[in-house]
Design a protein around this nucleic acid. Structure first.
Length: 596
DNA sequence: CAAAGTCGGGG
DNA sequence: GTGTACGACTTTG
């Protein structure tokens, strides 16, 4: 038996002999540093919780089904201790198969935690965090003797016992950016007819290359005899560079599907995964996500929409915003002309293509650290985090915390609950229309993290909300009158409190640090925590969320309006004149009257 | 006026 | 995959 340590990049599960096998995709640390590893764990089973109506009958009913076993557990449900039946199933896909049957039993009141993807359950229950290190005991297995496939330079390790999270520094990640150019005489290209003419690659370790079916004197251009050869070379480079992160711009929607369609048409295998698997697409509602096992494909477009507030989100616009530099631009509908013209025009196109890939690398280096820190805090795969809204991150963070606190996670709303929730919206923050005109000597006031502070100071949480309560024992929200026990500290306030405490701790460390790189990492960490804390209010007001509670949302905004109005009133008593206010701050001029 | 439809990015 | 989800804006009935 050996012990191995690796950076956990990604996770999924496969089925072997009707049993689920969790696969942890990583990069080894230690003597084999940099080598890709797939660590497999055969010892984890799916489960759901059942809230019984009739305990004895419930056990009998469920044991008649094809389940692994049942066990009584005592857990909290919105703060109330209850006995749940923990039902372990044989395979993750038994959950959707059996859950309705179980829910509909007369002996059952409700089922819980029946919609948590298996790999997410694994991360939470084992206390593992992607983009952090994991230590495992076990043995290397020869992939050929098993059903575990892997790429040439990847090794397969079978875990025995429990994986252990390791406190670790932020990992060095190898990033490879890519961008394609397509022949498009008729506007937007059609994969059915329009070939890929260039594939650009740029890494954070100095690689700058454009593959093309035309030649050039430019040294970064590598010419291939056909589109087929170009696609094969692309796959070869991805495998040999062995990046942890593969990043593009709008690549979920354009580059990845296009490469896939052309490869399929021409007959090239895009077997770029570290398990030798092909490029796949995951339906995520209206959008697709390109997935390469063992490498994390990230579409920066999605992230930029989340992080920046701009009128447009073209690569050019985002690049200018972040670096205050103009990029060489070729209008999209003229690309085929540049290609056909050849000569200087063609060289311009080559440079433009490479520039795009290099810009993606630069944007990635600047903007990915925040998402990577959020990954290390929220504890879900980076692939998912890069495609989640902050609200969803908050929810997965709370789900992990619920496990630690012994709270059973509330169910997602049914479609009827959802539409019912949508029909009522909590009143928002206080807004005072601006006084028209050009004002001088403006002062601004703002509450730091107004909503998180209210949730903590007024203990606003579903588990502390009560209908009847005296003013001694409860905080009572203005206007709306919702009541929250002063003690004990609620689930959500407790978690926000810990986030803010952790943020203060990191900011202190940051100030004390002499090492600029360490300072920068700590700064991103505290930003990530701030983001999480500030988004946490949303869980009460967004109709989709598990911890939705309109009364909590109403109470928070009511206290918010109360605070800002009182503060404005006080400022006016001191001679300020409010000009404009919105939610957590206001602007004023100093206009003392004669008495002052 | 509410409901239904479109679009973003990419070439 | 223990899936199936946006939000701002415009057009239509």
């Amino acid at each position: 038996m050996e012990t191995k340590k690796f950076v956990l990049l990604d996770i999924d599960y496969i089925t072997e002999d009707d049993r689920a096998v969790v696969r942890l995709f990583g990069k080894l640390q230690g003597d084999e540093k940099g080598r890709s590893v797939i660590a497999v764990d055969k010892g984890f089973k799916p489960y759901i919780y059942v809230l019984p109506h009739d305990s004895e009958e419930c056990v009998t009913d469920i044991n008649e089904m094809d389940v692994e076993g049942v066990e009584w557990v005592r857990e909290k449900d919105i703060g109330k201790t209850k006995d749940f039946l923990k039902v372990t199933l044989k395979h993750p896909q038994d959950v959707p198969k059996l859950r309705d049957k179980i829910r509909n039993l007369d002996s059952v009141l409700d089922i819980r935690e029946h919609d948590i993807p298996f790999y997410r359950r694994y991360l939470i229950d084992k206390g593992l965090f992607p983009m952090s290190e994991v230590e495992v005991d076990g043995e290397f297995v020869n992939a050929e003797d098993n059903s575990f496939r892997c790429a040439e330079d990847t090794c397969v390790f079978e875990i025995q016992g429990e994986p252990r999270p390791v406190e670790s520094e932020f990992p060095d990640l190898k990033i490879l950016s890519f961008d394609i150019e397509v022949y498009n005489p008729k506007g937007m290209p059609q994969a059915e007819v329009d070939p890929i003419i260039m594939m650009s690659l740029s890494s954070n370790q100095g690689l700058e290359k454009v593959l093309s079916t035309k030649s050039s004197r430019l040294e970064f251009v590598e010419t291939l005899e056909s589109e087929e050869a170009m696609l094969e070379r692309f796959v070869e480079i991805v495998k040999s560079e062995n990046p942890d992160l593969l990043i593009g711009y709008n690549s979920d929607n354009f580059d990845m599907p296009y490469i896939n369609d052309r490869a399929e048409k021409i007959g090239v295998e895009l077997d770029m995964g570290t398990d030798a698997s092909k490029l796949k697409f995951m339906r995520r509602g209206f959008a697709n996500a390109g997935l390469i096992k063992g490498r994390i494909h990230v579409d920066l477009y999605l992230l930029m929409r989340r992080y920046l507030t701009l009128d447009r989100y073209t690569l050019e616009r985002v690049y200018r915003e972040l670096f205050d530099e103009e990029k060489e631009d070729v209008p999209g509908d003229e690309i085929y002309q540049y290609w056909d013209d050849g000569g200087e025009k063609l060289d311009t196109l080559f440079r433009y293509s490479l520039d795009d890939a290099v810009a993606v690398t630069k944007i990635g280096e600047k903007m990915l650290p925040l998402s990577l820190e959020l990954t290390r805090i929220v504890g879900q795969p980076f692939f998912d985090i890069a495609r989640m809204t902050t609200g969803q991150m908050v929810e997965w963070y709370l789900i992990r915390k619920a496990y630690e606190y012994g709270e059973i996670v509330p169910n997602k709303p049914s479609s009827t609950q959802y539409s019912e929730r949508r029909s009522k919206r909590a009143a928002g923050g206080y807004v005072k229309d601006p006084v028209k005109g050009l004002h001088e000597n403006i002062v601004s006031f703002d509450f730091r993290s107004l909503y998180p502070s209210i949730i903590i100071s007024k203990n606003v949480s579903p588990d502390t909300m009560v209908s009847e309560c005296s003013e001694d024992e409860c905080y009572i929200a203005p206007e709306v009158g919702h009541k929250f026990l002063k003690e004990p500290v609620g689930f959500v306030p407790s978690i926000i409190g810990n986030i803010l405490k952790e943020r203060v701790r990191i900011k202190t460390m940051m100030k004390a640090s002499e090492n600029p790189r360490e300072k920068q990492i700590l700064d991103v960490q505290q930003q990530a925590l701030k983001r999480l804390a500030n988004s946490m209010y949303g869980v009460y007001g967004y109709s989709r969320f598990r911890w939705y509670r309109i009364e909590c949302a109403e109470a928070v905004t009511a206290w918010g309006r109360d605070f800002i109005k009182k503060t404005m009133k006080q400022a006016e008593d001191y001679g300020f004149k409010a000009l404009y206010a919105d939610t957590d701050g206001f602007y004023a001029t100093f206009e003392p009257s004669d008495e002052n």
